[in-house]
Amino acid sequence: MGPFDWLPHASLEPLQLDWLNGVEVAVLRLDLIDPLISGNKWFKLTGHLAQARQAGATGIISLGGAYSNHLHALAAAGKRFDFPSVGLLRGHPQDTPTVLDLKAFGMQLYWLGYGGYRARHEPDFWLPWRERYPHLHPVPEGGGGMTGALGCGVLVEQVRMQLHTLGWADYDAWWLAAGTGTTLAGLVLAEAGAHPVYGAMAVPDDHGVAQNVRAIVQGGYELLDASRGGFAKVDPQLLAFIDTTGQTSGLPLEPLYTGKALLALKQQIEAGVFAPGTRLIFVHTGGLQGRRGLVD
Rank of each mutant, 00 (worst) to 15 (best):
G2S: 14
D5Q: 10
W6I: 07
P8N: 07
A10V: 02
P14D: 14
L17C: 13
E24P: 01
D31R: 06
T46P: 02
H48P: 06
H48T: 01
A50K: 02
A52D: 06
R53T: 08
G56M: 13
G56V: 12
A57K: 03
T58G: 10
I61F: 06
A66V: 10
S68L: 00
N69L: 03
A73R: 00
A76F: 00
A77N: 04
K79T: 00
K79M: 03
D82R: 00
F83I: 04
P84Y: 07
S85W: 02
R90C: 05
T96E: 07
P97F: 01
D101M: 01
L102G: 09
K103N: 01
G106R: 00
Y114C: 11
Y114I: 09
G115P: 14
G115Y: 10
Y117I: 15
Y117V: 05
R120W: 08
R120H: 08
P123A: 11
L127E: 06
R130C: 05
R130W: 00
R132W: 00
P138D: 04
P140M: 05
P140F: 03
G143W: 03
G143C: 04
M146P: 11
G148L: 06
L150W: 07
G153S: 08
G153A: 10
L155M: 15
E157A: 05
M161I: 14
M161G: 15
L163R: 13
L166I: 14
L166M: 14
G167M: 15
A169W: 15
D172G: 09
D172H: 11
G181V: 03
T182F: 06
L184G: 00
G186F: 01
V188L: 09
G193N: 15
H195D: 08
P196C: 14
G199R: 08
V203E: 07
D205V: 12
D206H: 11
H207A: 13
V209S: 13
V213L: 12
R214G: 12
G219S: 03
E222D: 09
L223F: 04
F231A: 10
D235C: 03
I242R: 09
D243T: 12
D243W: 15
T245E: 03
G246Q: 07
L251Q: 04
P252M: 02
L256S: 09
L263T: 10
L265F: 15
Q267Y: 15
Q268Y: 13
G272A: 14
G272P: 14
F274W: 15
T278M: 10
R279Q: 10
L280A: 13
F282A: 08
Q289N: 11
R291D: 09
V295H: 14
